[in-house]
C-alpha cells in the first residue's frame, strides 16, 4: 500500500466540495484584516455565509467569522452549520493524517512500536468522531458539501519526520480542534442544546489524548538530538502561526468573551501544555494591520 499520499489524493465522493483557496496569509509575518476576511469568505464558498459576513462587515463591525456568535442571534443557525461542517471536515483530515502516521513510518526501525499503537488508537477515535459529527450535521440541518473543504490542515501534517508529523497533526491540528470544541461546547450550553454540547464534550476527551501524543512524542523522538529538536521547534512555530488564522483569533479563553476562537487553556493544560507552551501559541500570530 502506498505511503506518503498527497493531499489531492485524499478520497472524497461527489457530495464534497473542495476549494483551492491559496490561504497565503497563513504563513505571513504581517497581514491585513481585509486580506484575511476576503480569503475566509472565499474559503467557506457559501453564498449565505458571504452575504452574512458582508452585512456584518458593511456596518463597520467585525465580520461574523471573527467574533463569537450567540445562540439568540439571527446568524446563529448559519454559524453553527459552518462550525459543524468545519469540524466534520477537520475530523476527516485528522483521520487521514493519523492513518498516515500509523502507516508511513512502519519501516523506521528506530521508532518505538508504541508510536504506531498510539497513532492506530487515534485512527479508531477519529472514525467515531467522523460518525458523531456526521450525525451532528443532521442535527443542525446541514448537509455534507454545503460548505467548501480546504486541505490546509492536512498539508501541515505531511512531514516525513515523525517528530514533525506529530507536531503538525497532534499538537497543532488537534490543538486547534480543542479550541474549536471549547467554543462549540459553550455555544451548545448557551443554546441549551444537550446533543451538541454533550457530544462535543465527549469527543474532546479523545482530542486531549491526541494532543498529548503530540506533546509526548515530539519531545521523546528528539531527546538527545538538539539539532533535530531545533528543527522540530522551528516547524512547530510556523504551524502555530498558520493556525492562528491570520492572528485574528482571541488569545486566551476568558480574556475576551466576544473574541473568535480563543485558546482553550484548560483543555490544553490537560493535554500537557505548560503556561509557557500556551503563551507561545497565543503569541504565534502575525502582526495584524487594518480594521479590526
Amino acid at each position: 500500500m502506498k505511503k506518503f499520499m498527497k493531499s489531492e489524493e485524499l478520497a472524497r465522493d461527489d457530495r464534497f466540495t473542495r476549494t483551492a483557496v491559496p490561504l497565503d496569509f497563513l504563513m505571513a509575518e504581517e497581514v491585513t484584516v481585509e486580506q484575511v476576511e476576503e480569503t475566509m469568505m472565499t474559503l467557506l464558498g457559501n453564498e449565505d455565509v458571504r452575504k452574512m459576513m458582508e452585512e456584518q462587515g458593511g456596518g463597520g463591525g467585525a465580520p461574523n467569522v471573527f467574533r463569537r456568535v450567540r445562540p439568540e442571534e439571527d446568524d446563529a443557525p448559519v454559524f453553527i452549520k459552518t462550525q459543524m461542517h468545519g469540524i466534520f471536515m477537520g475530523e476527516m483530515q485528522a483521520l487521514e493524517a493519523a492513518g498516515r502516521s500509523a502507516w508511513d513510518f512502519t519501516d523506521d526501525d528506530q521508532l518505538p512500536w508504541q508510536f504506531q499503537l498510539d497513532m492506530a488508537r487515534q485512527c479508531w477515535d477519529e472514525t467515531r468522531h467522523v460518525e458523531i459529527y456526521s450525525a451532528l450535521l443532521d442535527h443542525v440541518d446541514c448537509r455534507i458539501g454545503e460548505f467548501a473543504e480546504n486541505l490546509f490542515l492536512f498539508e501541515f501534517g505531511c512531514s516525513d519526520d515523525p517528530a514533525e508529523r506529530v507536531v503538525g497533526v497532534n499538537r497543532c491540528l488537534e490543538g486547534l480542534a480543542l479550541d474549536v470544541f471549547n467554543d462549540t461546547i459553550r455555544f451548545g450550553q448557551a443554546a441549551d442544546d444537550d446533543a451538541i454540547w454533550r457530544s462535543v464534550d465527549y469527543v474532546s476527551a479523545d482530542e486531549v489524548t491526541h494532543v498529548r501524543f503530540g506533546q509526548v512524542w515530539s519531545k521523546a523522538l528528539t531527546e538527545g538530538d538538539p539539532e533535530r529538536r531545533k528543527k522540530v521547534v522551528s516547524f512547530q512555530r510556523k504551524v502555530d502561526r498558520a493556525f492562528s488564522l491570520g492572528g485574528l483569533r482571541g488569545s486566551y479563553d476568558g480574556a475576551n468573551t466576544a473574541a473568535f476562537l480563543p485558546l482553550a487553556v484548560e483543555f490544553r493544560k490537560l493535554a500537557g501544555f505548560s503556561d509557557e507552551d500556551i503563551a507561545e501559541v497565543a503569541g504565534a500570530g502575525p502582526k495584524v494591520t487594518g480594521r479590526k
Binding site: 505511503k3 506518503f4 499520499m5 490561504l23 504563513m27 513510518f105 523506521d108 528506530q110 516525513d160
Partner: peptide
C-alpha cells in the same frame, strides 16, 4: 534508516516569475 520518500516532491519549471509566494507559504 527508514525509506523516507514514497511520493514525488516538486520542482520548479521554466516560466517561474520569482514572486516568492511559494517560499513564504
Amino acid at each position: 534508516s527508514f525509506t523516507r520518500r514514497h511520493g514525488a516532491p516538486f520542482v520548479i519549471i521554466d516560466g517561474c516569475i520569482e514572486c516568492g509566494i511559494c517560499e513564504r507559504v
